[in-house]
Nucleic acid binder design. Sequence first.
RNA 1: GUCGUGGUGGCGGAACUGGUAGACGCGCCAGCCUUAGGAGCUGGUGUCCGCAAGGACAUGAGGGUUCGACUCCCUCCCACGACACCA
Length: 811
Amino acid sequence: MQQTYDASAVESKWQKRWEEAKVYEVDLKKAKDSYYSMVMFPYPSGDKLHVGHWYNFGPADSYARFMRMQGKEVFAPMGFDAFGLPAENYAIKTGIHPSKSIAENTRTMIAQLKHIGCMYDWSKTVNTSQPEYYRWTQWLFLQMFKNGLAYRKEANVNFCSCCQTVLANEQAQNGLCDRCSTEVIRKPMTQWFWKITDYAETLLQNLDDLDWPEKTKLMQRNWIGRSEGVEVEFQVDCSDEVITVFTTRVDTLYSGTFLVLAPEHSLVDALTDAQHEAEVRAYKLAAAKKTDIQRTDLAKEKTGAFTGAYAVNPLSGEKMPIWIADFVLAHYGFGAVFADAHDERDFAFAKKYGIPLKTNICPADGGDADAIRNLEVCYTEDGILYDSGEFDGMSSADARKAIAKWLEKRKKGRGVVQYRLRDWSISRQRYWGAPIPIVYDPEGNPHPIPEEHLPWLLPTDVEFKPTGTAPLAQSKELKERTEKLFGKGWKPEVDTMDTFVCSSFYQFMYLSTEGVGTKSEIGNRKSDFIDAKIEKKWMPVDMYIGGAEHACMHLIYARFVTMALKDFGFVNCEEPFKKLVHQGIITNQGAKMSKSKGNVVSPDAFVEKHGADVFRMYLMFMGTFTDGGDWSDTGIKGIDRFVQRIWKVLNKRVDQCSPQVRAKVHATVKKCTEDIPALRFNTAIAALMELLNDLEKQGGIAQEGAEIVARLLAPLAPHLAEELWESIGKKGFVIDQPWPEFDPALLETTSVTVAVQVNGKVRGQIEVAVDVAEAEVITQAQEEPNVARHLEGKQVRKAIYVKGRLVSLVV
RNA sequence: GUCGUGGUGGCGGAACUGGUAGACGCGCCAGCCUUAGGAGCUGGUGUCCGCAAGGACAUGAGGGUUCGACUCCCUCCCACGACACCA
């Protein structure tokens, strides 16, 4: 045995042995007690693995290792979310092809990941940018298309007229292009959408049964944004046109005095009269220049323009002027609202433009009825109706039902449910993504590319310089390929898919893959999308750990795609992730680590100095896993010492542990057994440290105890535990050993220390047997010298005994 | 603005369904060992008073419920995070 523990030598030794013995490879077909553990796969960027990765992957691996020692056959795959913007921007800057930079980054990242010592099954890795993978991204598109869930429509994109390119929201912050600072405009483009809204209700309902953080569920509920209301039809005055509006407050319809349409509303041009044409056109143009961020800036004053047209209020029969304003969003509801004095926004807008207002609701207790009636204040709450014909005196809630019924009877409206959730725009006018498997006939009609032509390869003869058209449009090869296969005049779709599509089904790809991403031959994977038996056995994912930033986008898309695949008959599960946990964020001096701030902490130096086990354990020991924390390197020493000391003491044998130490060993087993599955790694490690202190006082540990402690360490410090297991003379891998069990009998004590309080203050402690009667304990408590002093000359009015804890005396 | 989360020693953080606040670690202090130590070992360490025994005060601030509150309730302050005109 060496005197000191040489982390770096030990770690490479065991990493090599694990790999040679294929310890972490899982036979997906044969496995019986399956446990599927996933982390959110990383993007292979040129920067090295950072602290955030370690903070996600290390603890997640400790959890997976614990599950394995519980007897589960744990499948823990790792892959790469390799398509996306950074590689493309890097290519624009350097001329290096994304496939080349991504391949290189992936290679270095795999090497780095292996140093963490996680139990990844590298035989089943995925890389979304490989044809073997994106063939299935394209297949998924075809299924969506076939089942009517993929359609085309015009939608706005952020566009920079200087760079001649479409921008992602993150590239267009505060309305300026992040490359050239030109003002970003909204440009309409025809794009592919997936009908996620068909699943809005299921996405919402299923949340109740998921073992997910309540916070995340709440965010998804808000994102889906279900609201019940009424769709009301307004006849345009002197015209056949009808404007449909959605409202949750149909009880205020009587006071509705004007309509507001989104500038993009399809009827705007038809409604606008000659007199207002110039103003409306100017307003529409101005609105188009604004990004959503600017349009939805609450601080900015509301603006609008009058069209000159009027509609009729179906309830009151009054004429309502029709306005346009950019605070009304084209993509929510019907892109139109009716406005009244019971809404702050409408109220302010009407006052600004001198539009008449009316009220019809006051608080149930009368409240400030006059001020409301005189339009001095804006009352937005529910209340009692007045000036509302047959609905007078009704409560808002009753009126909503009654008015809905009234409208329905006259075919002027109906009760409906609206969602905030919008269909998923999956088109990207970019190069580095999965090509959309669609071709257009000479008339411009879209046709799906037959499955036998998949993967529909991403062409390579493309310049990356932005030209205003989608990069794939420049490819001669793609054009020729299309004409050769489909005929003269046929054109390929030139958009690629959103990278969120790639990551929406990777939970299935890990299960249906042998080495995708490690082999580079195209189309070597001829099997079905997934083997039904394997899917049934492994899905849904038992534990999914990743950042909270994906609470809405990725985690909703993956749920939607899983639901759709179930309805198409390819999978059995409806939900992809049974249990979800978000790790906290590691900040540096209180700020999120980012390249631009220059405060990124690299793990490399620490790992080199102390080893992966120490670094992993330190991250876990820093605080609560789900809370994250602020980085500081001062405490890592403590974990380093812990590793050295535990190495020493576990290699020092005593014939027999004292009863106290034996009890402590078993108490530590209990604590770790409870804390690790609950992801409370910090307290599990603290318990092991307490035990270590006792062991050192004893001067060593008995063989039996050493075998227990080595196994307790296996999830937390995998390399150290293997080395210990070997050095105490055990065969095989410690990770293949069953998790130790504790003997509850050893944890029972015969006597306990009980605190004695007098008027709520601790005045002394007494030792009592566990099963002693209450009266006896109270008598003993009063006899304790210091307690007696405080009781002197006073009458005990009340005495409370909390078993095994304390006695509370009131005088 | 709305919603959410959280404020505990010099620092990171513990604390079961209300039951001895400060586990564990860092740092600091003293001692041992050493040619030396940014190594190791032993002990101490919330603040204040006291030689000590002991006592007073302490979980962002203020109030309340209780024999007893970091924990429950009310008001306020601060920090962080998410969403952002949703009709």
